[in-house]
């Protein structure tokens, strides 16, 4: 059993300020509840007992910060998570994307890439992968490194296969990867048109124009202020009538961009930018 770590709210402010000043990452508008949990999680994982020790490590050891950043952000993801969402994408959104000569998709906060891989499979099955550019971005360089390689644990495949089938997939799922001893490698042709690059939703701006933006289970880690700001960034990054997909429990309800979007599929959280 790990020891309980007590952190005062002011101490979390201090950590946020230190990271901002020293490394340029701003976590000030992250959800305080989950950010505090992540800091504790990091401290437990590194056996750092007090907030003073944590500050000391962060100030003096850039390599510790790299590890901290990697562990602080939530990188949990899976292929075809929420099969009903992918089914809706397959049936409702992708056929409409087909009308664009070049399809541009942004996966914002792609973690280790599993949702990008899923999207590439959908596009391939629709015959659209060749003329699609997927921009997959994350805050975390280590995530991107992993995503580029397309490596996933073998023991996740059973669940991913089941998800794939429930999303309406008709192919042999195992044809999309090669199994090694304890991991699998995604067919690299699926990633040919995927550009993985670092982008920070807190500070970075519009960098292209997209017909579809996927950002699922990323906004939950932000407070309402930052959620609003990021949703404006998405709005500005979408073509008129472009699509936006959020996580199943994310809502536009209290956001001021709400009137600028139509809900295309309520139960799959797919929205469309108005003209």
């Amino acid at each position: 059993m790990n020891e309980w770590i007590d952190i005062l709210p002011e101490q979390i402010d201090d950590i946020i300020q230190l990271i901002r000043e020293q490394y340029g990452y701003d976590f000030g508008d992250y959800s305080r509840a989950s950010f505090t949990r992540r800091v504790k999680h990091c401290m437990q994982a590194a056996s750092v007992k007090t907030i003073y020790d944590l500050q000391h490590h962060l100030l003096n050891e850039p390599s510790f910060f790299n590890w901290f950043l990697q562990t602080l952000t939530v990188n949990v993801t899976e292929m075809f998570r929420d099969p009903l969402f992918y089914k809706a994408l397959r049936e409702t959104v992708i056929p409409r994307l087909a009308s664009y000569p070049i399809i541009k998709i942004w996966h914002a906060g792609c973690a280790t890439g599993e949702e990008v891989f899923s999207m590439a499979i959908l596009l391939k099955e629709a015959g659209l992968l060749e003329r699609t550019r997927i921009y997959a971005t994350d805050l975390n360089p280590a995530n991107l490194e992993k995503a580029r390689k397309g490596i996933m644990p073998l023991n996740a495949m059973k669940e991913y296969t089941a998800n794939y089938i429930r999303s309406g997939g008709m192919e042999e799922f195992s044809s999309y990867y090669e199994a090694k001893r304890d991991h699998v490698i995604l067919d690299s042709s699926l990633l040919k048109n995927v550009l993985f690059s670092q982008h920070n939703l807190v500070t970075d701006q519009v960098f292209n124009e997209f017909q579809l933006i996927c950002c699922r289970n990323v906004l939950i880690y932000f407070n309402k202020t930052l959620q609003n700001r990021v949703l404006h960034l998405f709005y500005d990054s979408l073509v008129p009538l472009g699509y936006m997909a959020l996580g199943m429990k994310e809502s536009l309800l209290f956001m001021d961009v709400r009137p600028k979007f139509d809900s295309i599929k309520d139960d799959a959280k797919i929205f469309r930018r108005k003209n």
Binding site: S31, R32, S34, R38, V74, I220, G247, K249
Partner: peptide
């Protein structure tokens, strides 16, 4: 703190 929920997928 503002009596709202936050979801967490960690």
């Amino acid at each position: 703190n503002d009596r709202t929920f936050s979801l967490d997928y960690s």
